[in-house]
Computed example of a mutant assay.
Amino acid sequence: MHIELPCCIDPAHASLTGHFPDHPIVPGVVILNEVLRAVEPYCSGMSDAFRMPSAKFLSPLLPGQRFTITIDHSNEKTCFTVKSGITCIVTGILTPESPSSGGDVP
């Protein structure tokens, strides 16, 4: 499965208030939430059942900056990339949540 989804974080997004005043950047958690929202329609609404064992932030994303989420799925591994033009913002991996782990950290 290969998915490409164009996105943009509204400069008025609530998370941006006070986040680096005068030079705001989009918080990483907001970007990762967009990744989960992008994969959700293709996984029977189970985006909350994913682990993100790897996410590497390579460049900041500015409010209002257009970007593309690319998701490539094969076997039990789903890789994602977030790019704005040719600039890579973040790369990472999604894996299904193990039923035995329950997602809790001891």
Score class of each variant (00 low, 15 high):
M1W: 12
G28R: 00
S100H: 14
L62D: 00
V39M: 12
P96D: 09
R37N: 14
F67S: 02
E34D: 10
V35L: 00
L62W: 05
V26W: 06
H73Y: 10
H19Y: 04
M46I: 10
D104L: 15
T91W: 04
V39L: 11
Q65Y: 07
T95H: 05
S100A: 15
H73W: 13
I89F: 12
A55W: 08
S100K: 12
Y42C: 12
S47M: 15
V30H: 01
K56F: 10
I71S: 05
I9G: 03
L36F: 11
E40C: 08
P96Q: 15
K83N: 10
L32H: 01
H23K: 10
K83L: 13
S47P: 00
S74F: 09
S84G: 04
C79L: 11
V35G: 07
I89A: 08
K77H: 14
C8G: 00
G92A: 06
P60G: 06
P41N: 14
I93T: 15
T87I: 11
E4I: 07
A55G: 05
V26Q: 02
I93Q: 14
F80P: 09
K83D: 13
C88R: 04
S54G: 05
T78L: 13
A14P: 12
H2L: 07
M46W: 13
F67I: 04
A12T: 12
A49L: 14
Q65R: 05
V35D: 03
P24A: 02
P63S: 06
V29N: 00
E40K: 14
E76Q: 13
T91L: 01
A38I: 14
G85N: 11
G18D: 09
H73D: 05
L58K: 11
V82F: 03
V35W: 02
Q65V: 00
C7Y: 08
P6S: 04
I3Q: 06
K83A: 06
M1H: 11
D10S: 07
T95A: 10
S101H: 14
R37T: 07
H2V: 03
P53G: 00
G18F: 00
H23L: 09
C88P: 03
L32T: 07
S54M: 11
P24K: 02
F50K: 09
S84R: 08
L16C: 01
I3H: 06
M46K: 15
V82H: 02
M46G: 12
D104K: 05
C8K: 05
G92K: 11
P53K: 07
S101W: 15
G85M: 01
G92R: 13
V82C: 13
D72E: 15
V82K: 02
T17M: 01
P96L: 15
V30C: 12
I89W: 09
P106V: 09
S74Q: 15
E76K: 14
T95F: 09
D22L: 03
S100T: 14
V82S: 03
C88S: 14
E4T: 08
S54V: 08
S47C: 04
G92F: 03
I86C: 07
L32G: 08
I3L: 12
F67D: 10
S44K: 06
S98F: 13
V26N: 07
D10K: 05
G85V: 04
D22S: 08
S74A: 15
A12V: 03
S84H: 00
S59L: 06
I25R: 02
R51P: 00
F50N: 04
